[in-house]
C-alpha cells in the first residue's frame, strides 16, 4: 500500500503557503462604511432598546 508523507513540514499541505497579498483599494472604504452602517444602525437600536429595559435593574425606577 502506498504511504504518503503527512509530515508537518510538507510545504504544499500548509495553510501558510505563499499566496496573493494586497492592500484594499482605497475607493472601497466608502462602501465599507455604508455596509457597516446598514447593519450597525439596527444593532445599535436593538442594544438601546435592551439597555432601556435593563435600566430598572441598574438605576431603579
Amino acid at each position: 500500500m502506498k504511504q504518503e508523507t503527512r509530515s508537518r513540514g510538507s510545504a504544499h499541505a500548509s495553510g501558510m503557503e505563499s499566496g496573493p497579498q494586497w492592500h484594499p483599494d482605497p475607493s472601497s472604504w466608502p462602501l465599507v462604511a455604508v455596509s457597516w452602517l446598514l447593519v450597525g444602525i439596527p444593532l445599535l437600536w436593538g442594544i438601546y432598546e435592551t439597555f432601556d429595559r435593563a435600566k430598572i435593574l441598574l438605576f431603579g425606577d
Binding site: P20, W22, H23, P24, D25, S28, W29, L31, V32, S35, W36, L38, V39, G40
Partner: peptide
C-alpha cells in the same frame, strides 16, 4: 479580485 476590501465580509 485583487484590491477587494476584507472589511466588507463581516457586515455581510
Amino acid at each position: 479580485r485583487p484590491g477587494f476590501n476584507r472589511w466588507l465580509v463581516p457586515p455581510a
